[in-house]
Design a protein around this nucleic acid. Structure first.
Lengths: 228, 228
DNA sequence: AATATTTGGTAACATCCGTTACCGATTATA
DNA sequence: TATAATCGGTAACGGATGTTACCAAATATT
């Protein structure tokens, strides 16, 4: 089965390539493509990771199994996103999470050896790959910052300000539901609701559904600058 | 000034090389070496990161400046450790922290372009570099796990069990002081002390200074498996 | 459309834990 | 050695937040 070049071009690894270059590349690299029905297990926690996955079609779910039995969803991946790039080059290259098909999907696999070959032949791809890892690193570092920001109020404000900066607007559309948001901030949903209510009472924000409007960014930043 | 090959061999980038290979490599790569007096500023937050630093001598301190003025030390680096490897390949390659000389020190710099050249010439080095990034990534992911473990008790237990597994012993030697430990767990020092006292009262642990002994790993693991 | 399910806001309650203060022990500095 | 500074344990207090329960609104399912 042949992967769709258009999807691959949206993959960070191949960013910057022309459709033509991508076609040519596909001819000269070795890979496999695999289809999965909905809910199929793609990678199990503990599996050895020796190849990179690229989602071609469908949606993929990454879950971290919790000792208590309830799994926590870490990420949803769709077309162009990669699987296992963070563990591929580790010495102890064991998959730390379970990957399943959230919908019927097809995935392209490239072996580690082939990747290395591609990297030495194409410095751009190498740069893209490292770039991707670095980006991920700052992302999780940011998450750590949020988690260690202190009180729930600081965590919420920090997150909102970050989103505003990212979306370059005072009108933010959140990427998740209240429940997921609470999880992201490592708090309980009612606690988050209470906090949002408080912030609305202060006249700092307005919100409805997944939309939040920052009414007083100055005050919010000032609060973040206070010691506690 | 010539760097000491012995120190470089302890650097992850060059791991696995013989002294002879290292010597030869030094002859054929371009780099600069710079000395700093104690407390000198090596990199300022916001600087552009376009080269990799390797600590040759002395100790280096990495601090994250907090809006309130007080800086938080993120890491101490010494011989063989690298500076800036995580941001070097980012699109927005701006140094996110301040790097200063904790003692008089000398640092070797390799430009990004030269690094790329080395990578294509030497796949081992490339693998080492990516390996390093990946390792860092799982490290911070582990930190996130600890931070989001829930109650302080769960965070402390989780950390202790992890350390025990890592040190393969019930007698753990902690890598930091109480103050630093509390910071790592994102809590206040008295809170940590209180919790340790409680765990001792339960007969689960014993501790003195930086040493902790797990007396009842089974109970501790069982507690971690409970829902709350 | 009718029903079931999920989502989100709210309130009451209990408790975890951050804060402050104090003191002895340990370690740096004179 | 004497003094200062830091580290670490403990206790009291209060506020922040997790927990539970309930209800209305939105959404999915039949």
């Amino acid at each position: 089965m042949r992967p769709d070049p258009a999807v691959l071009l949206s993959c960070l690894l191949f960013r910057g390539k022309t459709a033509k270059e991508m076609e040519a590349l596909l001819q000269h690299m070795s890979y496999t493509v695999h289809s999965y029905p909905k809910n199929a297990l793609i990678l199990a926690e503990g599996d050895r990771a020796d190849r990179l996955g690229i989602v071609l079609e469908g949606r993929v779910e990454v879950q971290k199994s919790h000792p208590t039995g309830t799994g926590v969803t870490i990420a949803h991946l769709s077309g162009g996103q990669t699987i296992g790039e963070a563990v591929l080059f580790r010495r102890e290259n064991v998959v730390p999470a379970t990957v399943t098909a959230a919908s019927p999907c097809t995935i392209m696999f490239i072996s580690k050896a082939e990747l290395l070959r591609l990297f030495t032949a194409d410095t751009d791809m190498l740069t893209r790959f490292i770039e991707n890892l670095s980006e991920r690193l700052v992302l999780v570092n940011r998450k750590i910052e949020i988690l260690s920001a202190g009180s729930l109020r600081r965590r919420v404000l920090g997150f909102l300000l970050e989103q505003a900066a990212q979306q370059k607007s005072e009108d933010i559309t959140l990427p998740f539901s209240r429940k997921e948001w609470a999880e992201h901030l490592n708090t309980a949903r009612p606690s988050l609701s209470r906090e949002l209510g408080y912030l609305r009472g202060m006249g700092w924000i307005e919100f409805k559904g997944t939309g939040v409007t920052l009414l007083n960014r100055k005050a919010m930043s000032a609060y973040m600058r206070t010691e506690h």
